[in-house]
Simulated scan of single mutants.
Amino acid sequence: MSAEEIIVGYDGSADAAVALDWALDEAERSGRPVRLAYVFEWLTVAGWVGPGVAPGIWPDENARRQVEELVRRAAADAAARRPAVPVRGEVYDGPPALVLQERSAEAGLLVLGSRGHGGFAGLLVGSTAVAVTAHAHCPVVVVRADGAATARSGPVVVGVDGSDASLLALGFAVERAAGYRAPLRVLRAWEPAADGGADPDAATAAERAALDEPLARWRDTFPHVEMAAEVVPGRPAAVLVEASGDARLVVVGSRGRGGLRGMLLGSVGQQLIQHARCPVAVVRELPHPRGE
């Protein structure tokens, strides 16, 4: 296992296939291996247990073999399509959110589709989404089927509010922009009404100054990356969803303050995940090399 590995939450659904394609693109670009992780909760009564798997009663060895064959075929097909990318598959038992959180400690990136079936049913709706994005030990990328196909170009967009999580997100976004050879668009959402009638020009200048310091070191480290910093009036979710229209990737921290407070704990985060028109990366912490 490697902290550079890309793990894909895979359940055989159409959205999981889109997430896998995105992960393969990322792996081919970065030289990382890919692991398909199929996670589901076995039922203790007769019922459906997974895509392409006949109903059974746990423990059902035949159903288990069907799942393993499904994952084996998916991994083999992915490897055949991208021969330069090492691809393998694993089957895990347990609550999907908990298992994915645990597996994320072994990876450099976790990639999920926005919808699934079987063990991933409702994966990114409600409490499961909060658990995966708020507690993963590596960045999580959520790929929407209706946004992935058009997200092959454009800038990398990152929301920054000065919180520790948003600064981690900024670093992740800069590195992705450098790898993609794409421009970086750094946004700070500002709601004028929250300033109690402060002078708009002075408030905007103060917000813009708050972006200059964290950007300075990244400009020095990656001088070849075109970086544009903007203070945009409006609600954070609306600002970022709008920016996603021509973006390659939108990056946010898992928890912010000010304009990004609760970004992935309430309605704002749900809006971004559900309505962004390109893949969304959520950064809570960065992966650590094994042994640290």
Rank of each mutant, 00 (worst) to 15 (best):
V132D: 06
A37H: 05
D146P: 00
R257G: 14
A206T: 12
T204V: 13
A237W: 01
L43C: 04
P233C: 03
L124K: 07
H288C: 06
V280E: 03
V87C: 11
G259K: 01
S163N: 05
P287D: 02
L215E: 06
A79E: 04
G122E: 05
V140R: 02
A281H: 03
L98G: 12
R103V: 13
R255K: 14
V186M: 07
L20W: 09
G256M: 03
Y38N: 09
A202F: 00
R261C: 00
V132L: 07
P86G: 09
G56K: 11
P236T: 11
Y92V: 01
G31A: 08
L43A: 13
L265G: 10
L187M: 03
A46V: 11
R235G: 13
V45T: 15
E191K: 12
R255I: 02
P83I: 06
R81Y: 09
G94R: 07
D11Q: 11
G162I: 08
E106Y: 09
V67L: 12
L43R: 15
G162M: 15
H224A: 12
A210L: 13
N62H: 14
L170A: 12
V268N: 03
R185V: 09
V53Y: 02
A238T: 11
A216K: 06
M1E: 11
L187C: 01
E102L: 10
F40N: 13
H137Y: 05
A205M: 14
L260Q: 04
C138F: 09
F172C: 08
R152T: 15
A178D: 06
A243Q: 05
H135L: 10
P233E: 13
L167F: 05
A178E: 07
V87W: 07
V91F: 10
S13P: 04
A238W: 02
A105V: 03
E68S: 07
I7Y: 02
V186F: 01
G47T: 09
V39F: 05
A194H: 12
D146G: 01
G47F: 10
A37G: 08
A78Y: 03
A189C: 05
G50N: 03
G262P: 07
H288M: 12
G113V: 06
P83L: 07
P183W: 15
T128C: 04
R82M: 02
P139R: 03
H275E: 14
A210P: 01
R261I: 05
G291T: 08
R255P: 00
G162C: 08
A54Q: 14
V91H: 09
M1P: 00
S153V: 02
P155R: 10
V241E: 12
A16M: 06
V125T: 08
S163D: 01
V283N: 02
